[in-house]
Amino acid sequence: MFTPTAGSRRLTLALATVTALALGVTACGGTTKDSASKDGGTAAAGKADPNAETKKDLTVAFLPKQVNNPYFTTADNGGKKAVEELGSTYKEVGTSSGTDTAGQVSYVNTLTQQQVDAMAVSAQDPGALCTALKQAMKNGVSVVTYDSDTNKDCRQVFVSPASAEDLGRTQVQLLSEQIGGKGEIAILSAAQTATNQNTWIDFMKDELKKPEYKDIKLVKVAYGDDDAQKSFQQTQGLLQEHPDLKGIISPTTVGIKAAAQYLSGSKYKGKVKLTGLGTPNDMRAYIKNGTVDAFELWDPAKLGALAAHAAVALESGRITGAKGETLTAGDLGTFTIGEDGVVSPGEPTVFDKSNIDKFDF
């Protein structure tokens, strides 16, 4: 899906990188893209100039957790559209697995060697990418994370899907309504190291401590690694291991679809409730056939677009990622960067029979 574009100097470096990777070299270094380096953390070197001219003819690379994942395809297409509207070149690279952290590290190193201007990365692991991302910033590459963050000093801006706390708590609230506030529940997550998943799950567990959930018991957190077949099998395993299970929360678009697929063809359809984070197109059939009552998600295209605007704004010097700075993002509107360089496109939407046909992503 990537279409690399660069001058002869970048092309030479890219060819050199391929050779290096073939020899198993993953460390990055060499000639920097420019003399300005980023110092990591929530601010780039220097001070933001919100009136600075937006640079054009940049190369902005997107590195999702997993390519060919419908969610990330939608998000990255949103990023592509925004990058091109801003007059720059978009490219995408990534692994086909949602757990190949070594592969993600190699891609970051390769992009650094190719001297892209900025990269937007959805981290599979909170710490594994840090060394590579810090080297990218040292070499003058602006670094944004989106959907799933790394450590805060390993990027400049994190574009969060929505408030992590809101996402964790609202998924519990949705399921509680569906099961009448009592019974055993389970969580079907993605990878065990996924930053965003674990943060949401922590808030789910905290929400469950409230008195109104005293009759709900979380019996297990299972991991499907954002693999459809494994998530399907994990759903089957949860129901075999816990025959009294009343509901499942799956905060991953791959997981919730796989769980719905299993439930829809089983004796548990309509009896075991399922909610979480999914796309309307993936979940429409399961809403309409009664397998799922309601689920939620933000618009991933807006998430990708905001990541693109943040990347270009960083590279243009309009923002540094510091708290209180203003990020102007075209039709998306204007956003204020929060604590630790976090910015979000807005609250999630709950999808059910009444509104699911109004959305197409």
Rank of each mutant, 00 (worst) to 15 (best):
D166Y: 13
V350Y: 10
G304W: 04
M283L: 15
N139T: 04
A132C: 09
K271E: 15
G333M: 06
A14V: 15
I319C: 00
A14L: 15
T170P: 01
D352Y: 05
L86W: 05
G127L: 11
K358F: 02
I216S: 11
C154T: 12
P161G: 13
A191G: 15
L274Q: 08
K257D: 06
D49H: 01
L263I: 00
K214L: 11
K269P: 01
N196Q: 12
A228D: 10
G79V: 02
A118L: 11
T328H: 01
A16D: 15
Q233S: 08
A136K: 07
D282L: 10
A20H: 10
D226R: 10
A162E: 12
L208E: 09
V18R: 11
D215M: 09
H242E: 13
T291Q: 14
Y71A: 10
D125G: 08
V25I: 14
P50F: 03
A36M: 10
I201L: 06
L303I: 13
D153T: 06
D340R: 03
Y268M: 04
S316D: 00
L297G: 04
E296L: 14
T73R: 12
G41A: 01
D352I: 03
A259I: 04
D282Q: 13
G78A: 13
S189D: 14
P251M: 08
Q233H: 07
V343N: 02
T95D: 08
Q115W: 03
N69I: 15
G265A: 12
P251V: 06
L314A: 05
K209C: 03
T336D: 00
E241V: 06
L167T: 05
P64F: 07
K138P: 01
D293A: 02
Q171G: 07
E165V: 06
Q156Y: 08
K210A: 03
I201A: 03
Q135L: 01
A75R: 08
G321F: 03
G29F: 09
A322Q: 08
Q135N: 05
L58Y: 12
A14G: 07
G98W: 01
F351H: 07
P4H: 14
N281I: 09
L111W: 13
A128H: 05
A329K: 04
V144D: 05
K91Q: 15
E325Q: 12
A102L: 06
M204C: 01
S231V: 01
A136T: 07
C28T: 11
V141D: 06
N68D: 14
A164R: 09
S106Y: 04
V143S: 06
V159W: 11
A190R: 08
A322E: 12
T320A: 01
M119T: 14
E85Y: 04
T31S: 08
T101F: 11
C28A: 08
L303K: 03
S189N: 13
Y223E: 01
K210D: 05
S316C: 00
V105C: 02
K38P: 00
P348D: 01
S264E: 06
S176K: 10
L239K: 06
A27K: 12
Q124F: 02
N51M: 04
L218H: 10
T326L: 05
D227M: 04
V105T: 14
D357E: 14
K65W: 04
T195E: 04
V343S: 02
A164D: 15
G224E: 09
S35E: 14
T145I: 00
S316E: 00
G321D: 09
D147T: 12
I337E: 03
Y268T: 01
E184V: 11
K273R: 12
R284V: 11
E85L: 06
K273A: 12
